[in-house]
């Protein structure tokens, strides 16, 4: 009776320890380098000033909200042109603007998105130029 009780308690504790140490043994101590983004595309290489629509820090932190605003303004309000802070004008288009430079979705968009498990719904509708349907 006494041994049965302690057997159950130890079993419970072992399950608890295995559960909370899960990431340790799932990763098996491998080191995981953070993703490196590739800007090596023909269009970007041809640019003299390598600047996205807005500055890198802003794009990095807020591109999702930014693109969402673009979608709402372009599709629902018909405002299709965007004037950047430095005065340049862009068409609010994922395929026509963003993916023209960043034509390497798998080496650019997907690397971070996969790393942090973000699942943008952009590509539910948008086609990737040059991507072959698998």
């Amino acid at each position: 009776m006494k041994n049965k009780k302690w057997g159950l308690i130890i079993l419970g504790l072992v399950i608890f320890v295995l559960a909370i140490t899960f990431p340790f043994w799932y990763g098996k101590g491998r080191s995981m380098p953070p993703p490196v983004l590739s800007l090596d595309t023909p269009v970007i290489n041809a640019l003299t000033v390598k600047r996205c629509v807005e500055d890198t820090a802003f794009m990095r932190a807020s591109h999702m909200k930014f693109l969402n605003a673009w979608r709402d303004e372009a599709v629902r309000e018909g405002v299709r042109l965007y004037k950047a802070k430095d005065g340049r004008t862009f068409e609010k288009s994922l395929t026509g603007t963003c993916l023209q430079c960043h034509s390497n979705k798998e080496q650019f968009c997907d690397r971070c998105h996969n790393y942090v498990d973000a699942k943008p719904s952009c590509y539910n509708c948008h086609v990737i130029p040059g991507e072959v349907k698998k």
């Binding site: 080191s31 993703p35 990095r60 932190a61 807020s62 790393y115």
Partner: peptide
């Protein structure tokens, strides 16, 4: 106030590799 998830995951993953 979006956090930089890449830097964040780099930190959390480095915890579990003890480095």
């Amino acid at each position: 106030f979006p956090a930089d998830l890449n830097a964040l995951k780099t930190l959390t993953m480095s915890w579990i590799t003890f480095a």
